[in-house]
């Protein structure tokens, strides 16, 4: 059963159209990825799902409820957690305080100590201001904070952006771990190789619309993705 469905989404900012007629779905326990070049409408799609950006048209349904255009904090409360692009830590707060914010909707009862066990590097630096962590540590912190909200669906926007390959592997290890615990994931990426390994299904976006949709298994050779990604015609290139 689909946990999240997006139907015929249109998003524009001022006069600029970012998304035109996009539809996608994420089933329970599934890892779905949105691939596409810059400006394809990936982040806009996540922003609409997570709330705070109202679409011009279209509908977002989560667990049977219409959540289109809802407020970000309400949508978070309903079980969707956004890991925004660009490592949004609370820079002046300590690592531990950052995590405490993640427990907000559970009135602080979520298990910070347990989460710290899974992130030894964060545990070591629990009293550090988050702004002084390395890029990789900040990305881990944001994911750890999102975990503490105990979401059913995590939206992850470009988790590998600007990170060293070794760190990216660690980030994906954690994401896959979450999936094993039954969490659904919708991951936006620009690089295809890792996603092909880890996702169940893939949407390739270009120009604000879905160019290609298939299971990762069917797309494994990467040729179809390349064509959809760059917009080459059949036979050309």
């Amino acid at each position: 059963m689909a946990l999240l469905t997006v139907e015929n989404l249109h998003v524009s900012y001022g006069g600029v159209t970012a998304v035109r007629g996009l539809s996608l779905s994420v089933n329970e326990g599934e890892v779905v990825s949105i691939l596409g070049p810059n400006g394809a409408g990936k982040s806009s799609t996540l922003a609409v799902i997570a709330g705070g950006v109202a679409p011009r048209a279209g509908r977002v349904t989560y667990a049977g409820q219409d959540i289109t255009g809802g407020r970000a904090e309400e949508i978070a409360r309903s079980g969707i957690s956004l890991v925004p692009e660009g490592r949004h830590v609370f820079a002046t707060l300590t690592v531990e305080e950052n995590l405490a914010v993640g427990t907000y909707m559970h009135k602080g009862k979520a298990d910070i100590a347990g989460v710290l066990e899974r992130f030894p590097r964060l545990k070591e630096r629990r009293d550090f201001p988050a702004g002084r962590l390395s890029g990789g540590e900040q990305q881990m912190l944001v994911i750890a904070r999102a975990m503490l909200a105990k979401p059913k669906l995590m939206l992850v926007d470009e988790p590998s952006l600007g990170l060293a390959p070794l760190i990216i592997d660690q980030v994906y290890d954690i994401l896959l771990d979450l999936r094993r615990q039954g969490m659904s994931l919708l991951i936006v990426e620009q690089s295809t190789s890792r996603i092909l390994k880890h996702a169940d299904r893939i949407y390739v976006l270009r120009g604000g619309a879905v160019q290609l949709e298939d299971t990762a298994a069917n797309l494994r050779d990467g040729e179809a993705i390349k064509r959809a990604y760059f917009g080459f015609d059949e036979g050309a290139a």
Partner: peptide
């Protein structure tokens, strides 16, 4: 104060 988007996505 540090990050509005991140605070909202923690349901604050």
């Amino acid at each position: 104060r540090d990050d509005e988007v991140a605070a909202q996505s923690s349901a604050v």
